[in-house]
Nucleic acid binder design. Structure first.
Length: 428
RNA sequence: GGAGGGAUGGCAGAGCGGACGAUUGCGACGGCCUUGAAAGCCGUUGAGCCCACGGGCUCCGGGGGUUCGAAUCCCCCUCCCUCCGCCA
């Protein structure tokens, strides 16, 4: 949620910044208007209450002096003031909640560093590592075919059990999944604390990160218990600090978690449906941090570099993209995507989205920190990115490491997690 | 699923109609002491909102109610805990 005070200070600047997303900013005009009305009404209400409290104190004194019979007039006045204050208060409450309703659906202000542009095609490529022409014919086989040939990916059974866009890994394919997760966790354990949060969460938890109310259709909801299946570990990890006050000395607070992630992919039926390109349930290692605003840029780069290094050390061809304002997620102020090139599918696959949310998520979550040696509190900044998203990396690995005989060599960095298996062969 | 008990400041924990925005302890901050630190002693310290910078209002899980006046009394809801049952 953006800060109303920002709007008071310079509504035009905020509107201009959000307009870079291609978003309709006209609701903000209503917010500004209602905010003024709200403050006027609140001021009047406060003055009435002040007066009422004075009268009430006098009544109390009369009672104590045994002159209760003289209090009648004052009591009537006090009640009358109270009623007027209540009426104004209702007005204030109404305006405040209307403002909140609108603001909850307004996306974050893009960072000034975020490039201009409205469509994904305009996203500048920051760097690309690896050459698309450098692949041999035996690497030009899509992973769903490789997976079937070797018996390590069983799309049909996934569908049988759960429906389209659910998959089952089999044998060393399943082992490879687990290897990727452990690899993703272990390499960041020097700085990120490993967590294992629940994957079913309450509504408030989804609201904090910005996944509700706007993106309700993308999430699985368990009606009977009113719980939501998390689309990413970002959701529970961000809500850790909901309504908490952290110590500045503990920042940046760096966390990571391996969880299953669940996505309905409501808006993308029929797109990218082959193999592992887009699935409803997948495993991911997420990196997340709480930081002060001053620390946030450095932390953003730390997560980006770690996510990048995980891919680079796997020996995959990848590129980093700086998302334009129009392609930014609603909660984000700046995002870099990492895309892996899958030579068999001949596609760039998004494997990580590394975002800085400024104080947008934390304001929704009321997550604050106390600056060392100072009174009062500040809203924290939150950042996160996928340290390793299994299915698409799995796809990239299997296609990139396919050998002439159809087997798949295990990337060196994964060897410690593969029970000594160096090559995945048919029937494994 | 059954029966009870709770929810108060960064944390712990008192208060149960008016002098309570709240005793106290811990923590944090400042000072004294010390070569430095620890210990000890003294002091300060909840959050949010508005402001003509004098101040004002709100908040004791959430929502209603009673009252001139509610952390305190009444009703509803949510959440947490304990015991029993069931269970990986």
């Amino acid at each position: 949620m953006i800060d109303v005070k920002l709007l008071r200070a310079d509504a035009e600047a905020v509107k201009a910044a959000i307009a870079r997303r291609g978003e309709d900013v006209s609701p903000l005009d209503r917010v500004v208007e209602m905010d003024v009305g709200q403050r006027q009404a609140a001021e009047e209400r406060d003055a009435l209450r002040n007066e009422q409290k004075g009268l009430s104190r006098q009544v109390g004194d009369l009672h104590k002096q045994g002159r209760a019979d003289e209090a009648g007039e004052l009591q009537a006045q006090s009640r009358e003031l109270g009623d007027r204050a209540d009426a104004l208060d209702a007005e204030v409450e109404d305006l405040v909640s209307q403002v909140r309703e609108i603001l909850l659906r307004i996306p974050n202000v893009p960072s000034p560093d975020c490039p201009d542009g409205l469509t994904p095609e305009e996203n500048p490529v920051v760097r690309q590592v690896g050459d698309l022409d450098g692949f041999a014919d035996h690497q030009r086989v899509p992973h769903w075919e490789v997976g079937e040939e070797l018996g390590i990916l069983d799309v049909a059974t996934g569908t049988k059990l759960s429906g389209a866009m659910f998959v089952m890994y089999s044998g060393l394919g399943a082992t490879l999944c687990r290897a990727l997760c452990q690899y993703g966790l272990d390499r960041n354990a020097d700085a990120y604390r490993e967590m294992r949060p629940p994957t079913l969460v309450r509504t408030e938890t989804m609201v904090s990160t910005g996944h509700l109310p706007k993106f309700e259709d993308d999430a699985y909801h368990l009606e009977r218990d009113d719980l939501w299946a998390i689309p990413t570990a970002e959701v529970p990890l961000t809500s850790l600090a909901r309504d908490e006050v952290l110590d500045e000395a503990d920042l940046p607070l760096k966390l990571m978690a391996h969880t299953s992630c669940f996505r309905r992919e409501a808006g993308s039926a029929g797109r990218d449906t082959r193999g592992l390109l887009r699935v409803h349930e997948f495993d991911k290692v997420e990196l997340l941090a709480y930081a002060t605003e001053a620390q946030s840029h450095e932390v953003h780069m730390d997560i980006l570099h770690r996510a990048e290094a995980a891919i680079a050390d796997l020996g995959l061809t990848y590129r980093i993209i700086d998302l334009v304002a129009g392609d930014l997620g609603a909660s984000s102020a700046r995002t870099f995507d990492i895309e892996v090139y899958a030579p068999g599918a001949d596609q760039w696959l998004e494997v990580s989205s590394v975002s800085w949310f400024s104080d947008y998520q934390a304001r929704r979550a009321n997550a604050r920190y106390r600056p060392t040696g100072e009174r009062g509190t500040q809203i924290v900044n939150t950042l996160n990115g996928s340290g390793l998203a299994v299915p698409r990396v799995w796809a990239g690995v299997v296609e990139t490491y396919r050998q002439e005989d159809g087997s798949v060599r295990v990337p060196e960095v994964l060897l410690p997690y593969m029970r000594g298996v160096e090559v995945i062969e048919a029937g494994a």
